Every structure is written in structure tokens, then in C-alpha cells.
Computed example of a mutant assay.
Amino acid sequence: MKLIDIFGALKKDMDFIERQLYTSIEGDDELLSETSLHLLKAGGKRLRPVFVLLGGKFGQYDLEKLQHVAVPLELIHSASLVHDDVIDDAATRRGKPTVKAKWDNRIAMYTGDYIYAKALMIATELKNPEIHRILAKAMVQMSIGEMEQIRDFFNTEQSVRHYLLRIRRKTALLIAISCQLGALAAEAPKEIHSLLYKYGYNVGMAFQIRDDLLDLCGTEKMIGKPPGSDMRQGNITLPVLYALQEDKLRAPLLKEIQGIHAGDGSGEVSRAIEMIVSSDGIARAEQLADRYITKAMDALSGLPEIKPRKHLQEIALFINRRTY
């Protein structure tokens, strides 16, 4: 099942949001418009705008108003990807050249900054200060999460708890506030957007864990980048941490990871992946993702029984079994 099949009822509104995304980055500077357009054309699931629109269905749904949340949240996500690609020295994303690969690091960094600024400009159309406070706080946390990831490159001693806090900041928070701010912009009751935040947070945690699993178990065609890219870049993810907890695997896996870090040919990503896949790390990570999805479903049970709730349930289930 594809996402488009799940939220087909939103197609017309999502087409509008897509047009607004493209319009938002045009016109100020020819090069910045070109690089930003290159990023948007690479596609993506557009999950964050979808969550905004579905959250808005629990209040006074107004697409003209909701676009000022949906577009900025997708732009913030896109800007973070441009910066990630510079930090990770990534050549491809979604099977296409990254901005840093097609241009250079400096152009990529300014592109990310430009997209962030555009997002904030669009959000100012909404006068509710609570929306801006939540948005700004999430951006601060995202930045902290990025710094933590850099500090933890090739850190095989980090705890699972530390990893979970990092992905909360890097991924889950933006998905959580996408659900929350859609309802807040639509003037839904506080208990509604609080439950939607809880749903989005748990879905976001499961989403990132699934992403980490796909990086190890997926093919390049499936994920749009070479398998094991996280490990090459030094990002030690949940399945790796779990595998390192197994006595029989710890020493040989550490040796491979240390060799990858050294870059002298003494460590092979393919061998490390084989070890992790042979461990209980994959199953344990899958089980944790399942638990987050269960918590997301529990949050939804407190919402009114309207069709958007069903859509949110279906998206959560899709995320937990996705292959891309």
C-alpha cells in the first residue's frame, strides 16, 4: 500500500500545498531558487503537511490558514536534509544528487538557511503566538539533536536511552508538532491537539527506528542510497547498539566499526551489516518500533471517531511496515 492510497481524500488539498511549496522558494535569487527547487523536486513523502491537514480536520478546517503551517513544516524538514547531507558528505538522497554534490558545501548551507528563513516568513501569516513558540522551540531542539549526532559519530559506548533522546529531537518532534499545530491552527480544543502531539511523537519515534532498520536491511533501490550509509557516516543506530550488547558479536563488530572509522580498509560495512542482521538487534529494534506504534494508537483512541482518525491509524500502520 502506498501513502497516496491512504490519504487519497486529501489529494486536492495536498496538490495545493505542493504548489505552495514550489512558489514559496521562487523569485528572490536565481541560484537559491534553483538549488531549493532541486531539493523539492527530489520528492519525499510529504508526511508533515499531511499530518497538519489531518490535524486540522479536528477543528475548523481552513486550507488557506493551514497552508501557513503545512508549508513551513515541510520546508524546515527539507532544510534540515540539506544540512544533513553536508555533515554526512552524502552524494545522493532519494536516488538523486544532493545539493552539496551538484553544487558544493557552501551553496548547500546557504540553501538550507534560505529555506529555513522562507519557512519562518510564511509562518508569520498566522498571528497565534503559541504556534510560533512551539515552532521555535522545536527548531532549537532539532539543532541540539544535530549537534548530538555529530558528537556521537562512531560512539559505540552511547546508551540506547541517549539514542532515543537524539531521535526524539531530530525526527519525532517535528512530526509531533505537525499533528499538533494543524489542530491548533484550526482552533481545536487543547485536549485534541495534546493527543495529536502524543500520537505524532510516537509515530515519529517509530518512523526513525524504521529508517534505521531500512538503512541496514533495505536495498539501494528501495532506500535511494547505499545500504549501511549511516554506519559509513559514523551514525550508530539502534540495531547496531543492540547488536553490540551481544557478547559473541561485540568484539568482531567493534573491530569492523573501528576499521570503517579509520578509513584504512580494515573495516567493511558489508561485514558489519551481516553481523547486525545475524544478531537479535533487528528484531529488538522492530519490537520497540511496534511499541511506539501501539502508544500512537492509544493516543488516537481518545479522539473523536471521525474519518481523519482512521487515516491517522492507517498512516501509523503504514509507517511501521514501510519499505521506503
Rank of each mutant, 00 (worst) to 15 (best):
I4T: 11
D5R: 14
D5A: 13
I6G: 05
A9L: 12
M14P: 03
M14L: 15
E18C: 04
R19N: 13
T23F: 08
E26Q: 15
E30T: 13
L32P: 05
T35W: 13
T35D: 15
S36D: 03
K41R: 14
A42V: 05
V50F: 08
L54Y: 03
G55M: 03
F58T: 01
G59D: 00
D62N: 15
L66N: 06
H68L: 10
V71H: 00
V71N: 02
L75S: 03
A79L: 08
A79F: 14
D85S: 11
D89E: 13
R93L: 07
K102L: 14
K102Q: 13
A108W: 02
Y114L: 08
A117E: 03
A119D: 04
I131W: 03
K137P: 05
A138R: 08
M139D: 07
M147S: 12
M147W: 07
M147V: 05
E148L: 09
Q149S: 14
Q149R: 13
T156P: 02
T156L: 06
E157V: 02
E157P: 08
H162F: 07
R168T: 12
R169S: 12
A172K: 03
L181Q: 09
G182C: 04
L184Y: 01
H193N: 13
S194A: 12
L196K: 00
Y199T: 02
V203L: 14
D212N: 00
P226R: 15
G228I: 10
S229I: 01
D230I: 04
R232A: 07
Q233R: 12
T237F: 05
V240F: 01
L244R: 06
L244K: 07
Q245D: 15
E246L: 05
K248R: 14
E256G: 03
I257G: 01
G259M: 09
H261D: 06
S266Y: 02
E268T: 09
V277A: 03
R284N: 07
Q287D: 14
Y292H: 15
I293Q: 07
M297A: 14
S301T: 09
S301R: 06
P308G: 00
Q313R: 12
A316P: 03
N320Q: 11
N320Y: 02
T323I: 09
T323G: 07
T323C: 08
